[in-house]
Design a binder for these strands. Structure first.
Lengths: 369, 369
DNA sequence: CTGAAAGCGCTTACAG
DNA sequence: CTGAAAGCGCTTACAG
């Protein structure tokens, strides 16, 4: 007859199996496993041989239960296909790995309700900490999470309450520098297209935009400002409206590179050349911004560093929650202006009214290659 | 004196706490938790009230240990900032969520050695299955993983051995259709720039490219074919060399949209207009390919569907590993040609030698919405 | 329909 | 330096 198949693979070896084979107790196996110092080297060697012979692979689930720590971080983003989140997620996973942590990726797909659902799932899974890439200025679910004592770290956006650990760009300054840059190029009619006023990032960039106008003695025009939502379609809609105005702006500050790309698309669709007829600047410095066919003037917010700081920060919080309970870890990164083609600064012919260029000291970006 | 602070939050409630409060056994609490049918409704209500009163949150780690299943999937990609992986990861996370599964994201950052390391970590964490976005044609670590019986699913690329469950694009057909399309536009001098010959995706696309040339009676020119590596810099290098040849090709088939974008950058740097002087086509249909300023002719490989199928497939495998042991689940998706600007087909003025256009029946792509 | 008991695979005081 | 025992928070036959 046929040889019976080997089904249900013999259960994988446990500490007990190793202990039996090495003629020691399970406690000793555990000590070897965890590089506990005081184990006789002869015993240690015997245990290690047994582990090798059995191809023993420790069960992290059991260890998590016993130690009450999972060495797992939850990462909640609104859209991993947004290069902003992809770049930060890469840095987060990488940094976590170097510290022996694993990352559960949660993507809300821009559906706000899913955030609370994911937070609940992560808490049931007993992650050691939660990193949130987007919160609303008013966000009860996140306030409750903070209240609960679960270590968490916000990045990119913060709460109006000012609570929580976070790492964000100095968004006000980013909006102000971009606007000043355009003012310096001679623009006086400058619009702003953002995502949502309920997000600190967009709201603060807009405040920076307004501040720069005010400082230059330019009166803000409310009809030049739109904050409709986060999808590309809404950004396009806003661009279409603003650019159809009889006295349309000669420059647009977009609250992100993605929004800026939508604006450029619509401008070209409407027969406006960029930067000839319309200057456009963004924020993020996503890879595409550097592309030859785009060359978007933007602000770099150092995404890899932001991701790294988020992880290193939350690991500190996990180690010593008390310490950060009353004085949260709040980091603000300085923006770096990257001057490229779409603002018109590099193409004197396109600069309006022949103003002399007065660039601030900036990193002139090319490819990020 | 000051009110003493509440530190180390009283340990979160367990089944025992709920059981005590509801005056039932822990087994009964567990039954209610798992919607076990035969529980008296009065008892069920009492337990539910107790859970609510205590804000009980089941411990998924303990449950995993007891049930020997984690409802967690591992996802290993080479670079989450590559839109291909970001798009598929989004679909994978989304599909997993609807089935109650969570996803651990592993990003090897294109460092091959990290793949084996991540696989080991995932196995220790006792994930129920592993999804791999990239394998080499010759990949011993993955062969061993398959041997081990751990449920796994490859996507995008497969093994030369043909083993394993996978969902891939019909890459040969994709390469062939793109090349035929260019041949149909009059091109006879067509180059191919791929990533690595050791990856099934690029290798099969190149085979399709060769097949199309052969079928058209065009002799393949080895100096027009480059497969150097996966980074943008290597793609640029290859483009620079091929386009500097005295008898440079009039069209390039790139093995991915990212490679195509690099080729376009170099072409423009060298003063060649696209598609006037050089037609370029890619594969993937990443969001950027649709952008106004690019309009890349490409092949859609239905990334969201690929991700969804990968998850649904691996869940089937997890449910019934025996069934797929001998006849693996292997799915091949049909490519969809998306004709845009960069091939020159939409701009008769740019079509070489005034050939009459003979487009295959295709989905003419615009924006992806 | 419900409970007592054993078990999942580790870790960790506590003795010695 | 090492072992016996208890415990982490669940689930699951097995009785009744």
């Amino acid at each position: 007859m046929a040889v019976p198949e080997q089904r249900t693979p013999i259960h994988s070896p446990t500490v007990s199996d190793v202990a039996r084979r090495a003629c020691v107790s399970r406690a000793t196996v555990s000590r070897v496993l965890n590089r506990y110092p005081h184990v006789r080297s002869e015993v240690r060697a015997r245990v290690e041989r047994a582990m090798a012979a059995l191809a023993y692979r420790p069960d992290a689930v059991a260890r998590s239960l016993a130690r009450r720590e999972t060495r797992t971080l939850g990462l909640v983003v609104t859209d991993i296909t947004n290069p902003f989140y992809a770049e930060t997620a890469a840095a987060i996973v990488k940094t976590a790995r170097t510290h022996g942590y694993t990352v559960i990726l949660c993507d809300t797909d821009n559906i706000p309700e899913l955030q609370a659902e994911y937070i609940e799932v992560l808490r049931q899974r007993r992650v050691d900490g939660i990193i949130l890439g987007s919160v609303f200025l008013h966000d009860p679910a996140v306030e409750r999470l903070i209240d609960s004592g679960m270590p968490c770290m916000l990045y990119n956006r913060r709460l109006r309450s000012g609570r929580g650990n976070y790492v964000v760009l100095d968004n006000l300054r980013a909006g102000r520098e971009l606007t000043r840059h355009l003012l310096g190029l001679g623009h006086r009619c400058i619009g702003f297209i953002g995502t949502l006023a309920g997000l600190s990032s967009a709201a603060e960039r807009r405040r920076g935009y307004r501040a720069a106008l005010r400082e230059a003695g330019v009166r803000p025009q409310p009809q030049f400002v739109h904050m409709r939502g986060v999808t590309p379609e809404l950004a396009r809609e806003a661009a279409r409206e603003i650019l159809a105005l009889p006295d349309r702006p000669t420059a647009i500050v977009a609250s992100s590179d993605r929004v800026a790309l939508s604006v450029i698309e619509i401008a070209e669709e409407m027969g406006l050349s960029v930067p000839g007829d319309l200057a456009v600047v963004g924020v993020d410095n996503i890879p595409m911004a550097a592309h030859q066919a785009i060359q978007l003037t933007t602000v770099d917010q150092h995404l890899a560093e932001m991701g790294r700081l988020a992880v290193e920060g939350i690991l500190d919080v996990i180690r010593d929650p008390e310490r950060y309970r009353r004085s949260p870890l709040q980091q603000v990164l300085a923006p770096t202006l990257i001057v490229r083609r779409t603002c018109g600064a590099l193409d004197p012919g396109a600069a309006l009214r022949g103003r002399r260029l007065r660039l601030p000291a900036v990193h002139k970006g090319g490819s990020r290659g």
